[in-house]
Design a protein around this nucleic acid. Structure first.
Length: 175
DNA sequence: ACGAGGATGCTCT
DNA sequence: GAGCATCCTCGTC
């Protein structure tokens, strides 16, 4: 379910839940925006030019979390789609709060727009660089099956990149 | 509603 | 030393 071609797995993440559990708080979002990044085949990927100290976790097995710092301030999280050695991953760009809104609002210092962006999602869930390389199958950040119906999946170009900016590899299920 | 600009730090050339 | 897989605030219309 988690492993497979990144262009299949990335949209399949929509509707699934992402949950963290530290310090008694258990915030959770339903993923509604994901982008695909295809390693050496994708000029926009952090792994386009091979393995570096930063992107090493992308070479792990499917279900590995790749967390990096963005613009010096924010954290962004990806789920690796594998197989091991192939640095393909889905960037988690947004989710709808489904549990633990209180702690998310506290972390975000606001009550709306809690997780509708890649940096907002990690901030709301408390995901930072210390979780890079952990597993979403049995680690502190868990990917759980979808519960309800998922809306139609909309496909667009990816956001905020300059290279390979024409590829329609962004998937949204937001109403 | 929309756009401009600033904050901020790490990675790789 | 340039270039970011971003977010927020404040200005204008």
């Amino acid at each position: 379910m988690l492993s497979g071609a990144v262009l299949d797995v990335a949209p399949a993440l929509l509707g699934m839940r992402l949950r963290t559990a530290f310090g008694g708080d258990v915030p959770e979002v339903v993923l509604d925006e994901v982008e695909a990044y295809a390693g050496a085949d994708d000029p926009a990927s952090h792994a386009y030019r091979g393995r570096t100290p930063r992107n090493g976790s992308m070479f792990g097995p499917a279900g590995t979390l790749y967390v990096y710092r963005s613009y010096g301030l924010h954290w962004c999280a990806n789920i690796v789609t594998g197989p091991e050695g192939l640095p393909h991953a889905g960037l988690l760009r947004g989710g709808r709060p489904s549990r633990g809104e209180g702690i998310m609002a506290a972390r975000r210092s606001r009550t709306t727009e809690l997780a509708d962006g890649p940096g907002k999602l990690t901030q709301a869930l408390g995901i930072d660089g210390s979780l890079d390389g952990t597993s979403v199958v049995d680690g502190p950040v868990r990917l759980l099956p979808a519960t309800g119906e998922r809306g139609a999946v909309h496909t667009t170009v990816r956001i905020g990149i300059t290279k390979a900016a024409d590829l329609p590899w962004r998937f949204v299920a937001r109403r």
